[in-house]
Design a protein around this nucleic acid. Structure first.
Lengths: 203, 203
DNA sequence: ACCTGAACACCGTTCAAGT
DNA sequence: ACCTGAACACCGTTCAAGT
């Protein structure tokens, strides 16, 4: 795990062995690029022109490709911490609410994450080999979080058992992808519908 | 430039009124383009290179733009008849099944339509002004079909009333968009979940 | 009227030349 | 090491020239 950003917690000068120094100007460029990408992605989605990001960061186009050889690497770097934050919300909710309610609240929280981060849903879909690492990271991080919530609800017999975590992650991501700006509240209501559908069949 | 008379050759002066005539070769080109586009869209989606379609149809790139000034016009022409077929399935199902079952079956039918026609869902989303006419046509044609099914089910008190036809059309389109080829049966199961969610709250 | 493809604009990506 | 931007490849779209 190579932490580019120092992100605090650099505490122990661990024996990383061969600790490569990053030139200060290079580090500045990386930071500026991540910041620029975050903003550009937010308004134009992840398909925004690379040149726009380079310009906003004040660097040459070649510098983007030096630090992020594939466009997907830039996307991954930008989304990683948001993914972490979303996953970390699960245990917090589990501690504060009843099982099914915690599940429902987390799904809404995850929904707003997808809605905010344009291009998250497309990145999650299989088929784009360049984005596979981000997809992998996402599932590794978020799947266990959701599974725990699902299992608690299942133990309380408050949720049907023929739906797994990946189903929910994909479904909510699809429903909350951008493009429905004309129907306010659409995403929230559809996710609510999905949540209702998760209740055990009344028989 | 040579100035040759319209309808040169065999046609002669047969009587057929002042009808606007399309030159036979032009008509052939349009047909070939529609067929080529149908096939290319099916495998590569609606973002496939225009050149690929022109080549497959055996015409110059300029000819595509002559008959379909906007790329969206070609997409619309290709999808229109499929939209009609989907809408027409509704009354048939209504005649053969109980209200809620007819609704459920139509939703699955619509789901397979979206899944088959790659790029249908993106076209349905607002925000692409060029595809607005197709979007309009789609809703004009399909919305009433679904509404009838919904109303029948509502009259029988078999469906909740806080969800409208557009919600369902958008939600199913999102869930069945391409990109989940790795999870077989995913779309069908998610639509089934949505259908379950449509049942009235059990109280 | 209709067809064609060279030409233009734009965007992703590379790489030789600079510091 | 790292930065830069000209250069290349590709794709959407136009238009002058042909039939």
């Amino acid at each position: 795990m190579k932490n580019f950003r120092k992100d605090d917690g650099a505490g122990s000068a661990s024996s990383d062995g061969g600790d490569r120094r990053v030139r200060a100007d290079a580090q500045r460029n990386v930071d500026a690029l991540l910041q620029a990408a975050l903003e550009v992605f937010a308004v134009s989605g992840v398909d925004a022109p690379v040149r726009a990001i380079a310009e906003k960061a004040g660097v040459g186009i070649g510098t983007v490709y030096r630090h992020f050889p594939q466009r997907a690497d830039l996307i991954a770097a930008v989304f990683r911490r948001e993914i972490d934050a979303c996953a970390d919300a699960a245990p917090t909710l589990a501690a504060d609410h009843a099982p099914f309610e915690a599940l429902a609240k987390w799904m809404q929280r995850y929904a707003s994450f997808v809605a905010t981060k344009r291009g998250m849903a497309p990145a999650l879909q299989a088929g784009n080999p360049a984005l596979e690492p981000l997809r992998t990271y996402f599932f590794e991080r978020v799947r266990p979080a959701l599974r725990t919530l699902l299992e608690s609800a299942a133990a309380a017999r408050e949720v049907r058992t023929d739906v797994d975590a990946d189903d929910i992650l994909n479904a909510v991501a699809s429903l909350c992808s951008s493009g429905h700006d004309d129907r306010p509240d659409y995403a929230r209501r559809m996710v609510a519908l999905l949540i209702d559908g998760l209740r055990p069949r009344s028989t």
